[in-house]
Design a binder for these strands. Structure first.
Lengths: 259, 259
DNA sequence: CGATGATTTGACACCTTTCAAAATTAGTGG
DNA sequence: CCACTAATTTTGAAAGGTGTCAAATCATCG
């Protein structure tokens, strides 16, 4: 039995004993992803070398280390982060199922950032040596990877706007809305909420705030009735009020590719 | 005569009366870019629909507007930025010759950010409708575009680390070092410095600081003898001391592709 | 030489951080 | 199922880095 019963985030796991064939990929049934042709899926299937499971807190990618693997997050949450020598840490963005991991390592000698699992998670493992054959044989998939890279940058851009120019209140509000929408878009709805494996110190590190101030900001938002977290499930009872506070304008989420 | 003599940044212009053929692209002679095959360059040549000149302060891309053009910055500097409804602005990153512009618009209905020229500049203009044919006919160039997208994200990542977790001093120091290195890498060395068309308010908007505080931070760095700007040329007299202050660790700059 | 934009300074308010410690909650082992 | 330890969340108080407001000084250009 691979599943750890000690882990508090087991709700994020999809129970399965063996690797999942790409044509039956559960993500493709969420409706959040673009459809692929049978040939493309067959190629993705052989591009996928294996499947790997990691536990909460595990390092998927270590900052400064070289690797020739790429991943797609098949289930679970993670985050990319970058640290200064003295330990100060910035979370660059959060990764949800379907997100592609490791592209930036291809552009540098060593991983310029780390990736850490927020929950127990499953990864589809690819070899970066095979990446070029993907572009050559299925240019459409190459295009998709560009799409994913560009889309992730878009998310980081918005994070940068929050950290640089939004107040603590606005930034936290924005982060909650954004994560909520992303979770819904990959089919993670639970009742009227979404799973939320994020601790306050993650929010602090994502927004460049201190833990103490993050806590106080969250308390104010909670007292305004703008969000609730019970049993690791996030609910936004007044989405419109929250969006107004955040100065939110829609990041039209078009169907996205999946490798 | 197209060149504006009113512009204080005319040093950034390469004087030319007509479009430059890609095989004779001056950027390719800087050594900062990866070589392409004759066939690839021929394709890029016909991918390039035209050349456009813009002046300091012109909007190359307007936030919220839809466009079907892509660009490569052929000469001059620019920056990507994103604004909140009330006017607060965040500069996402600076663009130097060779940088590719407009990819993110393909992933959204409208441009999620604006791009503004910092100097008079020249752009190679592409049609996004042609992008797919590029992937289909020259997968190697598709790969290059992914590389460029990924590399830009890497730069934004570092900006986010600065804004979120570096002090004002460290952030400014980092920005100066980073821009200096990038300018050198595309052959913009002048004497023992690089052109620097950036005003203090740009630095403020890039680092999420107020103009006043940016000014004071710069003054301290200057009094420490860590940087000088004379006649729009940036010099770093004590690069090691500056790097130590910034907590800099090298972002190994491998040769990059150019479209 | 007047006008406009960029850079500087001073004074003061305040948002955030830091330091310390308590209160809660979750996970572990008996 | 209870005690024990670690992780997470909360609070209080004080220090400090940044922001805001206002105005002066410089620089550039017509």
């Amino acid at each position: 039995m691979w599943q750890s019963h000690r882990n508090p985030h087991s709700r994020f796991l999809i129970v399965s004993a063996k690797n999942i064939p790409c044509h039956a990929c559960p993500l493709r049934r969420t409706g959040g992803f673009r459809a692929n042709t049978t040939e493309e899926i067959a190629f993705i299937q052989q591009f996928k070398r294996s499947e790997r499971r990691v536990s909460t807190g595990d390092a998927i990618v270590r900052q400064g280390v070289t690797s020739n693997e790429l991943y797609t997050l098949l289930s679970g949450w993670a985050f990319r982060h970058k640290s200064l020598p003295d330990g100060r840490r910035q979370i660059l963005n959060f990764l949800l199922p379907g997100d592609f991991i490791g592209l930036q390592q291809q552009m540098a000698e060593a991983a310029p950032h780390g990736v850490e699992a927020l929950t127990d998670a499953r990864l589809c493992v690819f070899r970066s040596d095979d990446l070029w054959s993907l572009y050559r044989e299925f240019p459409s998939l190459g295009y998709d990877i560009t799409w994913l890279a560009s889309h992730e940058e878009l998310i980081v851009d918005d994070g940068l706007l929050s950290v640089g120019r939004r107040t603590a209140m606005e930034g936290v509000a924005m982060l909650l809305i954004h994560l909520y929408k992303r979770a819904v878009s990959v089919g993670q709805t639970i009742d009227d909420g979404v799973p939320f494996p994020i601790r306050q110190h993650h929010i602090a590190d994502a927004l460049g705030l201190s833990l103490v101030h993050t806590n106080r900001t969250l308390r104010r938002l909670r007292q305004l009735g703008l969000y609730r977290i019970d049993d690791n499930i996030l609910r936004l009872p007044k989405p419109n009020a929250l969006q107004r506070l955040a100065g939110y304008y829609d990041l039209a989420l078009t169907p996205r590719p999946l490798i």
